[in-house]
Design a protein around this nucleic acid. Sequence first.
DNA 1: CTTTTTGGTAGCATGTTGCAACCGATGTGA
DNA 2: TCACATCGGTTGCAACATGCTACCAAAAAG
Lengths: 150, 150
Amino acid sequence: MVTRTRFDDSECPVARSVDAIGDWWSLLIVRDAFDGSRRFGEFQRSLGVAKNILTARLRTLVAGGVLESVPASDGSAYREYVLTPKGEALFPVIVALRQWGEQNFFAPGEPHSQLVDRRGGHRLRALEVLSADGRRLDPDDTTVHKISTR
Amino acid sequence: MVTRTRFDDSECPVARSVDAIGDWWSLLIVRDAFDGSRRFGEFQRSLGVAKNILTARLRTLVAGGVLESVPASDGSAYREYVLTPKGEALFPVIVALRQWGEQNFFAPGEPHSQLVDRRGGHRLRALEVLSADGRRLDPDDTTVHKISTR
DNA sequence: CTTTTTGGTAGCATGTTGCAACCGATGTGA
DNA sequence: TCACATCGGTTGCAACATGCTACCAAAAAG
């Protein structure tokens, strides 16, 4: 568990998100969950993480409402960790990280795992940040309003 | 610096991205950089991070090609940290984290900082994951191909 | 009924973080 | 130009988090 008292009450949504999933393992656990991992052992083998660390991370993610622990779907007495709706809402985050990684950390032609459209099997379209009326926005086209009500 | 030998050679783009920016401070530094912070002191005051930690993080981000150190724009002898093109490409990641935070960590009406379209000042459109031909995709509509060439 | 798998926990060594003190180079005001 | 404040760090230390290995009980498999 990271010691962080400073941003628990931050008014910045990015800070609260990072607080929930912004460590090395949590994001990869969520990625694996999107890829279909459900069982403790699946995450452990896939990630190679120490079991006590995995235990702690899964607990944090469950406490944070990203995952939930449900009875195993195969009828066994074990439990599974599945994404909640809140966890599923991380899909654009994972896709954004994946696309950034693809574009910046692989040499042309270097093999890498790829997220594809199940129907047709094609690569996804690159994420675009759009204005309310649909214009593509660059960082310079945006600004942060310090406080606002929703 | 996190000890991570396991994923340096990973073929998963998400893992490589997380390797570069997947810790508590790096993402917030990048967020501040998007919001206009450039100087060491700006980051330090904005984040409240210890100076030695900030030094280490900035060095890592520069080494990773996310930030670069340039002469100060005000003509002083100091230096500034600005986003490289690779760093700017993190824009969708930050926006995704921001939108996830807004939707999941704030009570209705609770004040929070907001990213708006400079032209018009409206909130941004929610990020959408799209197929190559423009259909909205949910996690279930996608699958990971283990290895592929680009 | 024996063995293996699963999903952990406990203890310990090591790595990382946060804090406070300190420091030289730079900028600023008189 | 001389004192003083600010900037951008570095250093040492204490606290905390992480990773590894060993161990264990419940469940499943054979």
